[in-house]
């Protein structure tokens, strides 16, 4: 009798042990998995962050030290923070900044409007060639920029607009990119049509419906487009290079990316030391980084919400 109960107890204990171990193994595994994930994340984060750190450290080094003629270091041995960063803000830099700001703000206002207009038209429109034009608009994504570059340049030249900021702003009026239109359309589709119909019965015209009812509901996608536009225009180099270039009258219209290119990469005997270059870099990156940090949820979710299914 006692043996049996001992056996039972041992077996029960063993079973309990095994259950406990299994449960904890799962939990243990989970912990290990979590730890591993964190490890990987941090490693990769270091990989992605490293150049930024490099840029920052180099921007506070002294002249010769940053050039490397006395040995290359990662950590600066002298801190010239104020001197270098002060040297960045000369007249030219402020001018580049102003120009970039003009381009970016104009585009941030125009493009979401145009994209939403077109998106609404494609989503709600009742005309037979709707599908045709939508496919055409989408297929412009696949058009290589090089093919249209030369004639568009000549076209702008005819109107005397090369060397100014106009070629960077005008294309935004015409829809602002197929991708934005596509996203806008997807979003409008998710808005129920009943509201439109109710408004129509009340006698509202199409544009009123768009402006008063649909557009305010498009806020998430508008935010997404606005931020995206900001980022892509802040960084833009290719079109600024082609349309603005480096002539006298166009120099005062150079954007930040372009101005930095001509100032530091096409060199004379000044501005050769990397420290001021890196300082300029840090200052240029800061606004976008901050913006992205603040709005990252909207950006990532913006794409999620519309669900890029072809």
């Amino acid at each position: 009798m006692e043996k049996a109960s001992i056996f039972k107890r041992i077996r029960k204990a063993l079973t309990n042990c095994r259950l406990y171990l299994t449960a904890n193994r799962a939990r243990g595994l989970k912990l290990v998995k979590k730890g591993l994930t964190y490890c990987l994340l941090c490693l990769l984060a270091l990989f992605f962050l490293f150049p930024f750190l490099f840029m920052f450290f180099k921007s506070v080094m002294g002249d010769l030290e940053s050039y490397g003629s006395m040995g290359v270091h990662f950590f600066p041995q002298e801190w010239h923070f104020l001197k270098n960063y002060g040297a960045v803000f000369d007249v030219e830099f402020l001018r580049y900044f102003r120009n970039t700001l003009i381009v970016v703000v104009c585009n941030m206002v125009i493009i979401p409007l145009a994209a939403c207009l077109c998106g609404y038209g494609f989503a709600r429109g009742k005309f037979k060639s709707k599908g045709f034009w939508f496919t055409v608009a989408l297929s412009t994504i696949m058009l290589p920029g090089a093919v249209t570059q030369v004639p568009v340049y000549v076209m702008f030249r005819r109107f005397g607009l090369t060397g100014t900021l106009a070629p960077l702003i005008v294309p935004g009026i015409f829809g602002g990119g197929a991708l934005n239109i596509f996203l806008a359309r997807q979003f409008v589709r998710s808005i129920p049509k009943e509201m439109d119909e109710a408004a129509t019965i009340d006698g509202a015209g199409k544009f009123t419906i768009f402006w008063r009812i649909v557009f305010p509901l498009l806020k998430p996608i508008v935010i997404y487009i606005v931020i995206n536009t900001f980022m892509s225009n802040w960084r833009d180099f290719d079109s600024a290079l082609v349309y603005i270039g480096n002539t006298f009258s166009s120099k005062k219209w150079q954007t930040l990316a372009l101005g930095i290119y001509y100032k530091f990469l096409i060199r004379g005997t000044t501005d050769i030391y990397p420290n001021v270059q890196m300082a300029t870099g840090v200052i240029t990156v800061l606004p976008i980084a901050v913006l992205f940090l603040v709005f990252q949820r909207q950006l990532i979710e913006g794409v999620v919400m519309t669900g890029l299914k072809d």
């Binding site: 002539t247 006298f248 120099k251 096409i266």
Partner: peptide, 14 residues
């Protein structure tokens, strides 16, 4: 004025 490419600059009509 400082400019690296005088010919383009002249061509632009300034």
């Amino acid at each position: 004025i400082q400019n690296g490419d005088v010919i383009s600059y002249i061509r632009s009509g300034d």
